[in-house]
Amino acid sequence: MPENTEKSSSGPSFQPDEVHHDESDAALALPSHVAGSGTLDRLIENARGYARQAASENTLKAYARDWAHFNRWCRQKGTDPLPPSPEMIGLYLTDLAAPTGPSPSQSELRPLSVSTIERRLSGLGWNYSQRGFTLDRKNRHIAAVLAGIKRKHARPPTQKEAITPEDILAMVSTLPFDLRGLRDRAILLIGYAGGLRRSEIVSLDLGKDDTPDSGGWIDIQDPGALLTLNAKTGWREVEIGRGSSEHTCPVHALEQWLHFAKINFGPVFTRTSRDGKRALEHRLNDKHVARLIKSCVLKAGVRADLPENERLKLFSGHSLRAGLASSAQVDERYMQKHLGHATAEMTRRYQRNRDRFKINLTKAAGL
């Protein structure tokens, strides 16, 4: 009988390979003139495995949903998604921007944002390439329609609210000091001080190569914790120094969780038994981080001037990352390195309102 575990940390059972595995894998096969063998078959299987690692699990899931949605749309219109038709794809993008009829998903009768439409198009391109086709995004039926959609419907990007140092302290103070509370406190403080994505937080192992699905590991030293991460932009190291107080120190919070959870190998942040008294072996799903942030935001009264539903929309996993970037008064190059950004411009996008009106060019011009 399966052991009862906390419901909040259970992730979806959907696997992206269930959607596109069979079709896309067909693109990785032996040439027709080469006879198969046990050795070559194993190499093909290994090559397919590497190909599936070319994108993150969340990206693959999104691309799988994009392809499934486009397939349903094509069936409704009496056409086939293969081979790619620039004309039909242009009409598909039009229908996403200005729906005119029944949608494969009733929740999508409303127009989609420009960023979502661009993501859908990228998903189609990836799926076509996995099936041995090339989607020409520069074709006039696609490029002209997309340019028109951007011109008419583009809006400034909606950014999640940054969590301030005062906010994070109020949030962790709402957590109990049982095993689950120790874990969640460590998640919030490590995520904030490290400027980590939620996927980076839950993918950490205690030691190098502890598990096959590891996204990095932690080395706890006297000055602090050194995180080695395999992130979106490649490998990077993140230094998290010890804080000025044990109550707010992310490294101390991490040590407390590891000690009482009796974790000395494998995933750092795991699920707990339903009664919250034992740590289990299973790694937390990254959605737990988002749910934890939203829950603590409400309990701590962060942005209490807004209705509850608006507050929930304002905060997400990225609020930790944006909070550090907006609050830490350090040279921009250090923040860029810490967050793993390729450009300073990307780092500035995370610094919510930090430098707004800091320099007054009107007065500098003598006006």
Rank of each mutant, 00 (worst) to 15 (best):
A144L: 14
G123M: 09
V19F: 00
D210L: 05
N285A: 14
F14P: 00
L28F: 10
S37V: 00
Q76E: 11
L109K: 12
Y128M: 07
A261S: 13
A47D: 04
R65D: 14
R354E: 12
N127S: 12
S32P: 03
V172I: 15
K152H: 08
T134R: 13
A54T: 15
H318R: 04
S32T: 11
H282Q: 13
A304G: 13
P223W: 09
S32N: 08
E166G: 01
E246F: 06
R321S: 02
S316D: 07
N360L: 04
A64S: 15
S107P: 00
T272M: 10
T5Q: 02
D184F: 09
A344M: 13
S103R: 15
A253R: 07
Y128I: 09
P307C: 02
T174E: 08
P102F: 04
Q130H: 09
G340L: 05
S203L: 11
L179R: 10
E3L: 11
A144K: 15
R303D: 10
G125V: 02
D210T: 04
S24V: 11
D184M: 04
T272S: 09
E23V: 10
R42C: 06
Q106I: 05
A68D: 14
S316L: 02
Q256F: 08
E255F: 00
K299Y: 00
I201T: 03
T79M: 15
D305E: 14
G101W: 07
H318K: 02
Q351E: 13
Y350G: 05
P267N: 07
N71Q: 15
E3P: 01
S326K: 08
Y192W: 15
L124G: 09
R283S: 08
D41G: 08
E239V: 15
R52H: 12
L227S: 02
H33L: 03
L206I: 14
E57S: 09
P156F: 06
L320C: 13
K294E: 02
H338I: 01
K208N: 08
S9W: 13
I163P: 08
N360M: 05
N285Y: 12
G234Y: 00
R348G: 02
L60T: 05
N58P: 03
A328D: 06
G195C: 12
T174G: 03
E166T: 07
A279G: 01
D167G: 14
A170M: 02
A290R: 01
P267S: 10
R278T: 14
G123H: 07
E6S: 09
V202H: 01
T94G: 14
P212C: 01
K152N: 05
R283I: 09
R151Y: 03
T59S: 12
L135Q: 03
L227R: 01
R183G: 08
A98M: 13
G207K: 13
R183C: 10
L182S: 04
Q130M: 15
H33V: 05
K313W: 07
M346P: 01
K208V: 04
I168D: 06
S107D: 10
E3H: 11
P86S: 03
G317D: 00
F315Q: 04
L204D: 06
P250A: 05
S32Y: 08
K138P: 00
I149F: 07
V238F: 01
W126D: 02
I187R: 02
K150A: 09
L280Y: 05
A365L: 13
R274D: 07
V289N: 01
V268M: 07
L298S: 06
E239Y: 14
L226C: 01
R155W: 01
I263V: 15
S129K: 12
Q256I: 05
I187M: 12
S113H: 12
